[in-house]
Amino acid sequence: MEGTRKYKALACQIRAAAIEAIHAIGQGHIGGALSIADVLAVLYGGEMRFDPQNPAWPERDKLVCSKGHAGPAVYGTLALMGFFPYEELKTLNRPGTKLPSHCDRNKTPGVDMTTGSLGQGTSLAAGMALGDKLKGRSSRTFLIVGDGESNEGQVWEAFAFAAAKKLGNLVVLLDWNKRQLDGWTEDIYPMGDYVAKFQAFGFDTVKVDGNDVAALAAALERTRAGGDRPYAIVMDTVKGAGVPEVAEKAMNHSLPVSDEQYDRWTAQLRTEQKAWEDEI
């Protein structure tokens, strides 16, 4: 239980950090950043092996956030882990920043791969996992893919490849938040049953509540076994999770964040964080 509370507290911090970054520039991809805060908390709070002092350590575990527009959540996490000063979050999308809207491995310490053109992170992650395997490293690669992003055909090429090459060191985390830029995925481009799809592609597949850190931690713990099948965790999430005003807005892909909202949302998240910390 202590682990769960620690993750819950960290997820609150990650959400507050993402809002910090987006508020500083006034608007940003808030919905899809908030939906993955919980999995980032479990990954960086315990599951992944990394060294903020040596971001290029070859033996580290890698994260590819293929839905690159969720950068603010990744940056918030990396800042909290000590890859760069927290204050730098306020430079999001400013000229010359290390923190562009979409993840960039050449700009941000701790970002393992450049993403942004949707779908491309999947093949990159497969290549990274294959490379680690061929180099004899015990590293694992965690790949966050959006459900809207999975409209891209390249995603399914990469999944077929990962299974064909037996990449048991690859864990796909599908952020099934049910919304894409233009609205509900079911209205725009329904993709069917993700669990059945992953299973048909040969993945070891589970579906969990993707905003429940305990469920995520349990699902991720299973993937440590490796083996010769890649893993898929279909994360049933809410776009905008953790900030009810954002989650309740139907169109929440990119939103402005006012000073008043920033104060209120971050105060609420700090309160929740403290409550979880006090229970530890």
Partner: peptide, 23 residues
Amino acid sequence: AINCGIAEANMVGVACGLASAGF
């Protein structure tokens, strides 16, 4: 030698991932 099948976009992405892994 990795045969990526008839999926060139994925092949290029995989190659780039391999490059980042030191190949």
